[in-house]
Structures are given as C-alpha cells and as structure tokens.
C-alpha cells in the first residue's frame, strides 16, 4: 500500500497553505517556467519538465540585504535582515533538492550564513518526481534520480487522479495534514531512463589537467557570460557592496560569477586568474575538484540547465568525458 492524495485535495491543501505562508511554485512567464510566489493556486503550472532558473533563488536570492546601519541617538545601530514568514516551495525536482543540499555545505558550515540559515529553516520543500526528462538531464550520474526523495520534506509522484505521497521529514508532516492522505493500492510510474555520464575519478583527472592547454582551447569558444553560474543550482558565489545615504547604510549581496573578468581582481589591480582559460577552468575545477575535496561531493546535480542555456554549447557532460581522456594517450 502507498499513501495517496487526490488532485482535488492537493489543490485545496495548496490553497490552505496560502493563508499563513508564502507559496512558491512553478509558473508560466511568457515562454519560461519560473518559480514565483503565487497568490492563487490557478497560477501554478503542474505540467513542466523543469524550471528555467533553479530554486536556489529562494534561499540565495539574486540580491538580498544583509543588514542596515542607521544613525540612532548620536550613535549607530546595526539592524540585521530577518526572514519572518514561513515559505513552502511546491514543485521542486529531485535534482534541485540535491542542489540545495550542496549549497548547505558552504552556507551552513560554522559560522553559518545567518540569512541562508533562516531561509532554510523557514522553508518546506515539496518535491515533484520527474515522469519525463529532458535530453540534457543526467541526474542519475550525479547522485540523484528522477524519483529520488532525498533532501525533500515531501515528495509527490503523479499517478492517475492524484499523487503518491511520501512524507519524509517532521517539517513535511507538519505541513501536510494526515487527514488528506489515504492509503491506496497504486503503483508508482516507471522511472524514466537517462543517459549515463560516467565521472569515474574526475577529481583526480581535474587535478592533473590543471595546466593542460585544454582550458585555453575551450575558452576560445566561451563568451564568458554568467549564464551557467546563474542558472546553476549549486553555484553560490556572490559580491557584497554598500548602498549608502546620509541616514543609512544598506549592505547588499548579489550573485557574482567566477566567469566575470573582475571577479578575482584585488587591490592594486592584480588578478590571479587573468586569462579566459583560467576563469573557465575555475568553474569546472570548483565543481569537480575543489568542492569534492572540501565537502566530499561533486558540485553538479545533473540538472542540465547550463547545457541548455549556454549560448555556445559549453557542455559539462562533454568536459567530464574529455578531461578523463586527457593524458591517456601520453601515458599509454
């Protein structure tokens, strides 16, 4: 027996959630599918492959105020930003749930990032299993899968007239009342098959490829925009700047990317990554070597967004394969 919720009960449950929390869900914006805060259940899209941008923007927004400093009683007062309201995110895919878990490593390592921690604590993740996949999906090669319940509070799998429900955490239990769930004899749909991207000992191969001309050749084609970093669920770099006026300072952080020309430029003008090849290598070395060294997992979840969005077909699947082949000939 499995647990089941009817489509009708799901919709009324989602409507109830709107009463005391933000509900974030996939919506159609022109031809895009974007996670948006919705005010009515009718705006939610249920039939989508995956969203154009990843759900990371709800934990690590494109821009966010960290704190204010204001004049008060002849001195100054620091006012930290706080997250008051609970949020439920509906429609997260398993790959993106893994992406959030990857971001927890850097953001929640002590000393934890206070704002990120609040976003995480105040948010409940309701996942939707993938019944179909895109050609560029490769989550099964990156530690997840189309029906993977890991890192979610609730996972829903669509079947006829409703969803199979897996309540996975106390947070999930608190969100979804037992009375809406019934026991039913429903078989889950088949898990869609995905093409394999074997990563083998990619971290070691990346280390050996550090000085390989491969990166400069790849950088010939790369236009060094920030699309890959910004659509990626696990890219977490940011810049911090102060917005000031006479009465108040506002400290803001915004997404930044290792692909930006000035990203590593320091006082005096020195840039340790002065070439396009060194910047491009950084993106893949971080995902496939440095992050695994520091936290024990590849910082790629196989969502395929960078593959889809790259204007010049810089394809991480191809890079993972090519880097493993580098030096094979010379060693033989």
């Amino acid at each position: 027996m499995t647990q089941f919720i009817s489509k009708k009960d799901l919709l009324s449950w989602l409507s109830q959630l709107l009463e005391d929390r933000y509900l974030v869900a996939p919506t159609k914006v022109d031809e895009l599918t974007l996670f948006r805060q919705v005010d009515r259940v009718d705006d939610i899209v249920f039939d989508f492959d995956n969203t154009t941008l990843s759900p990371k923007e709800w934990f690590f927004p494109p821009s966010e105020t960290l704190f204010y400093v204001e004049r008060k009683d002849g001195g100054v007062e620091l006012i930290p930003a706080t997250i008051e309201r609970e949020t439920a995110i509906f429609g997260i895919r398993p790959c993106d749930a893994r992406g959030m878990a990857m971001n927890d490593y850097p953001f929640l390592a002590e000393p934890a990032d206070a704002l990120y921690r609040q976003h995480r604590d105040k948010t409940t993740l309701v996942g939707l299993a993938c019944l179909t996949t895109r050609p560029e999906c490769f989550c099964t090669s990156m530690g997840s899968g189309p029906h993977d319940p890991a890192n979610l509070d609730i996972l829903l799998t669509e079947v006829a007239d409703g969803y199979i429900v897996q309540v996975l955490t106390d947070k999930g239990k608190a969100l979804l009342p037992d009375k809406l769930i019934t026991a039913a004899d429903v078989s889950p749909p088949p898990v869609p098959a995905l093409s394999d991207v074997p990563s083998g000992d990619i971290s070691e191969k990346m280390r050996r490829a550090f000085d390989d001309p491969f990166w400069d050749r790849l950088a010939d084609r790369c236009i060094h925009c920030n699309i890959c970093s910004y659509v990626c669920p696990t890219c977490y770099c940011f810049d911090v700047r102060d917005y000031t006026d006479k009465e108040r300072i506002e400290r803001v952080r915004s997404w930044e990317s290792c692909q930006s020309p000035g990203f590593t430029r320091i006082a005096g003008g020195y840039d340790p990554r002065p070439t396009k090849g060194s910047r491009l290598r950084q993106r893949f070395a971080h995902k496939l070597l440095y992050f695994p060294e520091q936290f024990g997992a590849l910082a790629c979840v196989g969502c395929g967004r960078c593959v889809r969005a790259c204007p010049v077909n810089i394809d991480i699947r191809e890079i993972i394969q090519d880097v493993q082949q580098l030096g094979v000939k010379s060693e033989a």
Binding site: L53, P62, I223, C225, N226, I227, S229, Y230, S260
Partner: peptide, 12 residues
C-alpha cells in the same frame, strides 16, 4: 524585472 544580469547580451 526578469533580468538576472548575466551580461550574456553584452558578451555575445
């Protein structure tokens, strides 16, 4: 409002 300032328009 949708712009994520990836600067792909500039870079291309």
């Amino acid at each position: 409002s949708r712009c994520i300032r990836c600067y792909a328009c500039r870079q291309v």
